[in-house]
Design a protein around this nucleic acid. Structure first.
Lengths: 240, 240, 240, 240
DNA sequence: GATGAATGAGATTTCATTCAT
DNA sequence: AATGAATGAAATCTCATTCAT
């Protein structure tokens, strides 16, 4: 089997895993369900991925990759317009994306909680077990998990420099605040579009989303924002 | 055993369950760990609670109760000042509370995801099984799960009426937006204070939190906000 | 269940385990077979013993205990006669015992190979895995594994002192040599009596055994044996 | 592929199998480890050998061959000196060989236990399954497994006839007794030289070995030994 | 009311073996 | 001849739940 054939098979398995994990959650998913999903045997999954946790990380890795690609596309598309437009495009893209791929959002949040919980008592969905740390995909994610932050922060700086972003705070601070809004909106919106609902608490989702985007716009354009923190950006990447 | 004695025992068990669930998560928690925590037997837990899921719902119920009490206290304390102050007090109280009791936040989010996921494919931590729906505590939560929303919306309306809240949008919309900010901040802050960190991505948490509160203030005071939606509030409670 | 009831159950399980392990060997034995043997469930075995390896060690522990008891009995019975008679009684007793309980012999040999192999590359039937080292019974064996040696060496010294044992070599050396004979005989005799055979290579087993005992007698009475090694006996016990 | 090419490949595989089996034991060895050892695929091993058990038997066969060759060499070298010298040379050679190739000893012992256990309950490392009995190498071993006995017995008879061996017992009996000593010593010495230790229970191995050889010498020279058994030697070969 | 021994349905994972290429 | 992807039958171990005492 050629390398590309192998990749195709791996992708198929990740497809199936994503489908079942997203429906049942990590713990309630049986490896056999994933295998049945594409008509292969459990053994085959273990041939390509060594453990359930590694497979889960493979799915998470794909989620990261997808988001990162989305961000890069926005940056590329908006490289000739202002940083403000670029950042807004990213935020908008993310919002739209998360609506249709809510599970990716959950994977990202879960991964970050996993990594942060690392230091002291294990918590959350997964424990950072030995098996976990032996996971190839876990290591692959570690190499890219700061890219989303870095991409947005870069565009925020560009916007501050080209004058399109009036908020002069530390761009990391701006990112964190804007991202909080995005994440909060997405969390609350969970399963809302999934279930095909057009409203939450009878508020039309479209209106609410417009509100959220306006809020982010306000954050970027808030010329009164304080500029308390002046950390060196180049040290950010090591500190998730 | 008198009713009060029973309540005390139940409370002890919920204490222990909360402690273990919050450390290990639902799936990784064994009933025996909870029993050991207070030196009783597994059988005793089953005497008071009928299933692991019901016990989990009991813990969730307590979380709801605690949050609701917190909200009522804020309302009571601020009944003589403006609605704006009351809402800000609630938001601030919640932020402080969630920092120290992050698990309660998770329980709330999990419950809401559970309930929303009801319609189609089961998802999340728990499956809404038959056993689940027979859970006494699950039904008890259903009776109160809309109170947090209702309390805040009431205060928002009061603020709009007394002129302290300039945003004239549908108060549910304001709530959703402000709550998105709160939830997003809290989610990102997970395990951050738990691990005793003072900064996230090298941004001081105190600064960031001040930013977040300022953002909520801006939302309430935004006189340009649109007033698209005019739903009847009395129909809210059935539609989480 | 009282402590004694627990002991009885444990003993039943060890009985069953001994039976199956001795027939199929460690690797070919399934926990379910042991459970079926006494009509209980697999879970029950795990309730009393935490792992297959621990159960195996429990069986081994019993083997050690049985042998040690046998030795003590010989010592007690022969405390008023010469050391020579005591040692011969032990050897004879062991030979008879091993004929009927060959599996105990295998367990002892296996354990010792396990412990010795510890230092470098893992080898043999069992690996000294983490699970192994967490085994309660493994630790219990470690406390007694030198007793057989110590008992015999003590009697050998008594024999040298009372003049009944003419071989003046280091008693550990005498023990090793005599024990080699015993072990060799027992190994070759494996499954011989088990299959009810009365001869090996058409040599009557009784004659051969008489020969072996005569050989051991010769070792003890060999006044020409060199006395090369004069190690301190009190340091023996730490070095299996 | 020519026959000789085939032999070379087979030998390579047996080399690798011997290496891994001797380190990990039969059950803990994976076919893939053996394949990796020489950079071939699992399928190739199955092309040359039909099953794991057959491969194991091939390794065992080589062990028998090696020992037998060693014995023949001793006989050839000592054909012009007394039978006593020839037998002592064989014993010494075996002792030295087993020290460096302990695993061969284990294979031999395992095989004999396998064959003897045949009649009743299966025991030991391998089960004498149908697959096993179909093993080409298993049959090949059966053709030669009595040679070691026969060679030594022949030399013993020569020694009795030339007067160099004073023990007039049935040579099979002498062989069994001497072999018991050799096997016992070798068993106890397991992993001792492997781990490069120079002493066991603080007794220098060299001294102990000298003792053992002296013991064997005594057996051969014991003119008091009884001559109970007079079996016909030609019937030996069918009765392992 | 409380206990904890017992259950048994699964869940993950392993690996000898096969077979299409 | 050789490969290595695929299989599937185990095997160990877990744990929510039950129930006799």
């Amino acid at each position: 089997m050629s390398s590309s054939k192998r990749s195709i098979k791996e992708a198929q398995i990740i497809d199936a895993a994503e489908k079942v994990f997203s429906t049942l959650g990590f713990n309630n998913t049986r490896m056999e369900s994933i295998a049945n999903e594409i008509g292969i045997s459990k053994g085959t999954i273990y041939f390509y991925f060594n453990s359930k946790e590694n497979l889960f990380m493979a799915v998470t890795h794909r989620a990261f990759q997808t988001i990162i690609d989305l961000y890069y596309q926005c940056v590329e598309t908006n490289k000739n317009v202002s940083g403000f437009h670029s950042v807004m495009a990213i935020m908008d893209a993310y919002l739209n994306f998360a609506e249709k791929n809510y599970y990716y959002f959950e994977l990202l949040m879960n991964y970050m909680s996993l990594v942060r919980a690392n230091s002291e008592g294990k918590s959350g969905l997964l424990r950072l077990s030995e098996a976990m740390q032996e996971s190839l995909y876990f290591r692959k994610i570690q190499d890219i998990h700061n890219l989303p932050l870095n991409i947005v922060v870069t565009e925020l700086q560009r916007g501050q420099e080209d004058g399109s972003i009036l908020n002069k705070s530390n761009p990391v601070m701006i990112y964190l605040t804007a991202w909080a809004v995005v994440i909060g909106y997405t969390s609350l919106n969970v399963n809302n579009n999934k279930s095909g609902r057009r409203s939450i608490f009878q508020v039309p989702v479209a209106d609410w989303k417009a509100n959220i985007l306006q809020l982010i716009r306000n954050i970027l354009l808030d010329s009164n924002a304080q500029t308390t923190n002046n950390l060196a950006l180049n040290s950010v990447s090591d500190d998730i």
